[in-house]
Amino acid sequence: MNYFVIVDVTLREGIADPEGATIERALPALGFTGVTNVHAAKSFRFEVEATSESAALEKANSLGERLLSNPVIENAVARLAPGNRA
């Protein structure tokens, strides 16, 4: 069957995040105070044909590591999206 999956691609710790920093600097001008530690990330949604949830996640994680992220600077973690049949 098909599983709905999301892969989150985030910057590794210690890697500069100019997008997150720029967003954080813009917040006070918009009246948002008390918002700190802003990080920018990407997420990818897709459907995976697999025989089980764990097989679907394994495939998605492999895809995340090999294509969706650059392991030098990013982590990729797959999770099941809402909407999967129990």
């Binding site: 100019p18 997008e19 720029t22 650059n70 030098v72 600077i73």
Partner: peptide, 17 residues
């Protein structure tokens, strides 16, 4: 070349975007 693993490291968005 960095993405292909033929050179080390990676190129990120410029500081200051």
């Amino acid at each position: 070349l960095t993405e292909a693993g033929l050179l080390a490291g990676a190129l990120q968005k410029n500081r200051g975007l």
